[in-house]
């Protein structure tokens, strides 16, 4: 016997609806967590990433001894956290003698690990160490620009992968409408060598240029760091194919009688059918107003007595 179980209150229902799969997705939530051992640098890196993504991230501060993303069996609790928090990107920090200041950035699909990339953090400069005009400080939750440069991002597999992951991590929410007054920050990623990427966070200074497009100046506001790519794991082909599926675009129906002309612009043909005014149905459908009834009534009132008389005569 089955019972229908529904949430007891509206708040829970809304929360469940937020987690339901949707046709067009609006960006992923990020889970930031750490292993048993972290260095001072890594703690700052994690907390600053969280600070930058505050509107769309969850930070776990406890030590996690059972998470080893690259090993089999070490991803179970990670997948559980992803399920629990509904996050599909995770940033996992740990440090060891072999891999100091290690950052594992990964994505999940359907709450299972999709891909992983491991980077080491070097030359880290924290936000506090930058001095700049506080008027330029970007608003929290504003949509950032992301800029990649360097041929290694296209030629080297690891960096190509890292570019995709970084884009998804940093881009924020997918929006339809953008307020131009809210633009104020940019992430600059540059491939220095085949396994090293320089990442920094800058504020924008918009200057008048005489046209509608302002002239841009970048002011570094931090944090800035170098990523050294260590290990990476790409998704397997079938999973990638499944994850790349998109909602089918509404098939463009052929629009009849509309054509476009270079000179005249959009042209439409209109066919006006014969207006059969006599057969038109009146808006008021009251019984008494109906034509057939009225006519029938009139007929009956004239003929009935006569026919009756005829009958009587016959008999």
């Amino acid at each position: 016997m089955l019972k229908v179980k529904t949430p007891k209150n509206r708040r829970v229902q809304r929360e469940l609806e937020k987690r339901a799969p949707r046709l067009v997705e609006k960006g992923k939530k990020t889970l930031i967590l750490q292993g048993t051992k972290t260095s001072n640098v890594l703690n700052t890196v994690l907390s600053e990433i969280y600070h930058l993504k505050r509107d769309n991230a969850i930070r776990y501060t406890r030590k996690n001894d059972s998470i080893r993303p690259f090993e089999s069996g070490g991803e179970t609790s990670l997948e559980f956290f992803s399920m629990k928090t509904d996050c599909s990107i995770f940033v996992y920090g740990s440090t060891s003698k072999k891999r100091p200041d290690n950052l594992v950035i990964g994505r999940t699909y359907d709450h299972h690990i999709y891909d992983l990339i491991e980077v080491g953090v070097e030359n880290f400069k924290r936000m506090d160490s930058f001095t700049y005009d506080k008027k330029l400080a970007p608003q929290a939750g504003s949509k950032p620009f992301i800029v990649f440069s360097g041929e290694a991002f296209e030629s080297v597999d690891e960096l190509k992968h890292l570019k995709e992951v970084l884009l998804e991590l940093l881009r924020g929410e997918v929006v339809d409408n953008l307020n131009l007054a809210g633009l104020g920050r940019v992430y600059v990623c540059t491939a220095i060598s085949s396994n090293r990427v320089f990442l920094t966070h800058c504020a924008l200074r918009l200057k008048k240029s005489g046209t509608i497009v302002p002239r841009i100046e970048l002011v570094e506001i931090g944090p800035s760091m170098d990523f050294v790519v260590r290990r990476h794991r790409l998704p397997n082909e079938s999973l990638r194919k499944e994850a790349m599926k998109t909602a089918k675009d509404k098939t463009h129906k052929k629009i009849k009688n509309v054509s476009k002309d270079a000179l005249q612009g959009k042209l439409g043909k209109i066919y006006v059918p014969d207006q059969k005014l006599g057969e038109m149905v009146l808006p008021n459908k009251a019984k008494g107003v109906k034509r057939e009834r009225r006519e029938a009534k009139m007929k009956n009132s004239n003929n009935e007595p006569a026919s009756k008389k005829q009958k009587e005569e016959d008999s």
């Binding site: 997705e25 999709y114 995709e164 998804e168 339809d176 409408n177 131009l180 990638r240 499944e242 790349m244």
Partner: peptide, 29 residues
């Protein structure tokens, strides 16, 4: 800035085109 914009109280609003970079989904369709 060259996209057609509409004025709003907070500033000019621009309708962004959909992203062209293909990224994996979060959950199945």
């Amino acid at each position: 800035f060259n996209l057609p914009s509409t004025e709003d109280i907070d500033g000019p609003l621009v309708k962004l085109p959909p992203p062209t970079t293909k990224l994996p989904r979060e959950k199945p369709l």
